[in-house]
Design a protein around this nucleic acid. Sequence first.
DNA 1: TTATGTTGTCTAGTTTATTAGACAAGTAGA
DNA 2: TCTACTTGTCTAATAAACTAGACAACATAA
Lengths: 245, 245
Amino acid sequence: MTKTESSSESHLSGVALWRRIADAIRLDIVGGKRQPGDRLPGETELAERFSANRHTVRRALAALQAEGVIRTEQGRGSFVDQARRVSYRIGKRTRFSENLAGQAATISRDMLSSRLENATGSVAAALGLRAGTKVTRLETLSSADNRPMSRASIWLSYAAFPDFAVRFAENPSITATLASYGIADYARASTRISARHADADETATLKLAPGAILLVSEAVDTDLGGKPLLYALSRFPADLMELVV
Amino acid sequence: MTKTESSSESHLSGVALWRRIADAIRLDIVGGKRQPGDRLPGETELAERFSANRHTVRRALAALQAEGVIRTEQGRGSFVDQARRVSYRIGKRTRFSENLAGQAATISRDMLSSRLENATGSVAAALGLRAGTKVTRLETLSSADNRPMSRASIWLSYAAFPDFAVRFAENPSITATLASYGIADYARASTRISARHADADETATLKLAPGAILLVSEAVDTDLGGKPLLYALSRFPADLMELVV
DNA sequence: TTATGTTGTCTAGTTTATTAGACAAGTAGA
DNA sequence: TCTACTTGTCTAATAAACTAGACAACATAA
């Protein structure tokens, strides 16, 4: 009756055992319990610890190696090859590039695409516009040290900021682009944070292991008078980043 | 060569197709795109939309029904059976019970266990204590309308708050218990937010579908002078809750 | 060199996941 | 009632995940 007891969990979870093992090991590394250069326990010991076969453990280790989290050497063992999570600070003044300064050598934010669309429910509500109003939508990808760190969708009123996409292409940051419209300063009004699995598109652009978890931030930035300027939906790989309030 | 193209994704992901489908449907519901009472598309149409077999879709729907997210009726279809996500507000004054008031009828925080232990690295650092100092550790489970909503571990200095666990059992909340020590008010100093899969223990106590995603909050509360009072590691089901900064 | 412990690579068998098709059983409207 | 559409339940076949065991290849230190 209980012949296949150990595998009954995976039957209910829908998440393969090798992936749960990889997640557990990555969590230790990215959470700081294991330092870069540390040697992991041997495959046989890991197999015992997770009540799994050595082949299953090997598959988990192979996935972690493909992600660049560890490095495996024949005859020696597996070694931690990545530092701990990067912190992204959220506050009144939240600026992407200032935020990661000091945690990475090079920081960039590239525009993947832009288009004009009609504001729908959540976008219109966030920007305080009537549904159907024209808004500019930007799709951006931010990287630190050439590692994709954030995939964001940004909406702004087209009437208030005509040709924002064009100007953004000529400016180094959102802050600088807003300044070109006479917005000297702006503040974060609200941030809503949730988490979910990455979809196929996000997996590709953020160069994630398929099935990875994202932290999702929905933010509204306003001018100093409280008038909404932009609405941003940002997605951060939960393995690489944590949000600090 | 590309005979099994559609299944090659699941090979890389380690997350079963039926679970990815269930996650996608749940995301629509919990994100507000589908309202309670709405009818989902038929199984055949969902199967086409996700490029999967109807049996695979049925398994996803069965999982969602087991979670209480939808309800399926023979001959009629599947219907949304749960409201959208609950918001948990994080700010200077973050109090669990005040936070969810208005979003649920009954709110409770139960103590699962308590013990005395020696402060280790992260706990000692957060509380500003030397490693090895005695601290009280509480394990709590919070519920709204009898649905588990948060699993938290809380650490306090034993010297500053002797027998905290005993007093907490006699008081309705952390706030009230701290008041009994003469702490009239306290504030949230920092919050770090990350996300990961639930482990076996968390899956059981929070009554989650195995493989569910958690929002993890690490917070330090201080008195009004900035002296650390407690360190809390809270886990929220990402399907049910979002954090609002 | 030798012994020991490590990772790499095979073969083989079982269980689970996914697909495919057919038909039963329930619902709702013409 | 009849028809069309829905979910429920079977059987069957293939692909992927997991387990089990054996042995090769490499690293390290005695």
